[in-house]
Computed example of a mutant assay.
Amino acid sequence: MISSRTQGYIFVVITMCIWGGFTITSRLNAVWHISPWDITAFRFGLAFLILFPILLIRKDTAFLWHKEPFILALIGGVAYCLVSYSAFHYAPAAHAAIFLNGFLPLCTAVAAYILFKEPFERDTWISVVIMLSAIVIMSYLMYRSTGTAFGLGDLLFFTSAVLWAVFTVLLRHWKLSAWHSMTSVAIWSAIIYLPIYLLFLPHQYQQVQPMHMLMQTLFHGIFVVMVATMAYVEAIKRLGAFKTGSIVTLAPFIAAVVAVPLLNEPLSPAIMFGLLGMGIGALQPWRWWGRKSALDQALAAQKAQQNKPDQD
């Protein structure tokens, strides 16, 4: 029987693999000239076509008509996708790892405090100091080498982190099942966004190679929307929002390094410092320093009990 904690880590690994792929493929959208408007429409359009008939067959649509699914879709679906996909057109994958995924645990803690008055833990304050220090030093190094510290893409990535953090905290607070969370985000996002896209936004997918469009639609419409969302929700239920957000942060950092040879993206000393600092602040490795394993603790307790003087 797999423990709940172990199940949580399994779901985290699944989420990490897909989130790492999300970073690479989202950057490929810019390389392949796939607009944020198009990929968002195809992503949620495919998910809607798959999921809505399943809900009708199961007669499981009542949950959709509450305010919670609509709000989750608006924040973690439409808004997050448009902002994050747009950011990849202005900044490379390494910047996403820093300003989106690096800030995600911190933004989650701040959102939990603002929305539900959840206090900061000591480890969270340490993370804040490390992350802010890393950003200050990185911006100084970038300004010295390029004359510019931050760009529009960085601002969009940070905005994405804020949106996803609020989405994460609301998910945990409202306690929707993984299935209802995933289907509500996918279906309501399609209902909200597709009419706007069809009537008012530019369509550029005709200029994209069909195979590129198909690959991105399948990955983002099935794996990102469905598989990753369900795995992420299940991980939050078992490990908590902050720990889940901290661990899955590692995947985009790895993807940022992979993007250097794969997409021929630059990796300056300033960006490397930022990746290192944000990674340490997000993962909080000091939590595990000097911590005994469960077996060591059990053996120590047994030894102490044996050495305890007989009271008889």
Score class of each variant (00 low, 15 high):
Leu199Lys: 06
Val227Asn: 09
Phe219Pro: 01
Arg238Phe: 01
Arg238Tyr: 08
Ala178Gly: 01
Leu176Phe: 12
Arg172Gly: 04
Thr244Ala: 07
Gly221Thr: 02
Trp179Ile: 03
Ala165Ile: 01
Tyr232Asp: 01
Val225Ile: 15
Gln206Gly: 02
Ala235Phe: 00
Glu234Trp: 10
Tyr232Leu: 13
Met211Gln: 15
Pro195Trp: 08
Ile191Asp: 00
Gly240Met: 10
Ile192Arg: 09
Gln204Leu: 12
Phe242Tyr: 11
Phe200Lys: 10
Trp188Ser: 03
Leu198Ile: 15
Met182Cys: 15
Ser189Cys: 05
Arg172Glu: 14
Leu194Glu: 02
Gln216Ile: 05
Ala241Asn: 05
Ala186Thr: 04
Thr229Ala: 05
Gln209Ala: 11
Met226His: 00
Leu199His: 01
Gly245Ser: 03
Ser246Leu: 03
Val225Cys: 09
Gly245Tyr: 03
Met215Lys: 07
His220Gly: 03
Ile236Thr: 07
Leu214Thr: 08
Thr217Asp: 00
Val208Cys: 03
Phe223Lys: 10
Leu201Trp: 09
Phe242Ile: 14
Val208Thr: 15
Phe223Ile: 08
Met213Val: 00
Met211Lys: 11
Thr217Asn: 12
Thr183Gly: 03
Val185Gln: 06
Thr244Pro: 00
Gln206Met: 14
Gly245Glu: 08
Ala178Gln: 03
Phe219Asp: 12
Leu170Met: 13
Gln216Asp: 01
Leu198Pro: 06
His203Thr: 10
Ala241Asp: 05
Ala241Met: 04
Lys243Glu: 12
Ile196Ser: 11
Ala178Cys: 08
Phe200Cys: 12
Gln209Lys: 01
Lys243Leu: 14
Gln207Val: 11
Met226Thr: 02
His220Asp: 06
Tyr232Thr: 12
Val227Ser: 02
Ala178Met: 05
Ser184Lys: 03
Ser181Glu: 12
Met215Pro: 04
Leu199Met: 13
Thr168Gln: 14
Pro210Arg: 03
Ile187Ala: 00
Lys175Phe: 01
Val166Leu: 14
His212Asp: 11
Gln209Met: 08
Val166Met: 10
Ile187His: 04
Ile191Pro: 05
Met182Ala: 13
Met182Leu: 12
His220Ile: 00
Pro195Leu: 07
Val225Glu: 07
Lys237Val: 02
Trp174Ile: 12
Lys237Phe: 10
Leu239Arg: 05
Tyr193Gln: 11
Leu171His: 00
Ala241Lys: 00
Pro195Glu: 11
Trp188Ile: 03
Thr217Leu: 08
Met215Val: 10
Gly221Tyr: 06
Leu214Ser: 08
Pro210Asn: 01
Gly240Cys: 01
Ala235Asp: 04
Ile236Gly: 04
Ser189Met: 06
Phe242Ala: 11
Phe200Ala: 15
Ala186Gln: 04
Tyr205Cys: 09
Ile236Cys: 02
Gly240Glu: 11
Val227Gly: 02
Trp179Asn: 08
